[in-house]
Amino acid sequence: MIRISILILICIILIIWAAPLLIRFDPMQTDASNTLLAPSPKHLLGTDYLGRDVLSRVLYGGQRTLIITSLAALAGLIIGVGIGLIVGISSPLIAALLMGVLNALLAFPPLVLALVTLTLLGQSDAALVLAVGLAQTASVAQVMRAGVQTILIQDYVLAARAQGATAWRIIYAHILPGIQSTVLVYGVIVFGYCLFNSAALSLLGLGSAPGIPDWGVMLAEGRNSFRAAPWVAFAPGMLITIVILCLNTLVDNLNQC
């Protein structure tokens, strides 16, 4: 399983980044007289509502989607894990304060949080990364805090503490290895949420500007022509699913090693 997953992921990444060599159509070029063409030898995945070649868009869009989503997920994870660690090991007062902020943030559904952040920061790719990533930090931190607490009460950690190990030492030697699998598993889930949320933002008219190829945007746009031309939404939908599925399998198997 792990080999197949790695193979598929590598193939997808290779094809996506080799896109300029492989495709014949400009992914942005509209063509009013060739809209919603079914898949054919000329357009392998058909054309969309604006007559653009779906294959070109799905490949070019992959670059942007994977980069933006990875950055957003990474931002969310790093900040979230950081906060989770601090809450886990800091004094009760600071922990309570941080938990207060976290719980306050959790009171916004991630999509709404991303919407607010993006409206505040203005439209840009950096803002999109930050908005989508930040929307995940509170829940990441929550999960990590729980993980950290479970580890902190383990006998060996208590023993290490009793022997006067510093906080950094405990984090490095015990907590980080202990939450590693949680971070990996949750990281993949966060990646998925980031992907979904950046797409959902484009459903709301935010996120990536219309026209720019992006799996999420394509999925959102494809819904409008879903009945007449399911292939428009099918390709990005499948790719999102395959990528996350492979990542999940990968993480599962890494865990077991």
Partner: peptide, 22 residues
């Protein structure tokens, strides 16, 4: 089951929702 669980976390909900509606 692993496959189904994998699908549950990797298919966007508005994709499933749209399919269910249509």
């Amino acid at each position: 089951f692993r496959l189904i669980i994998g699908l549950a976390v990797s298919v966007p909900i508005y994709w499933t929702g749209t399919l269910v509606i249509f």
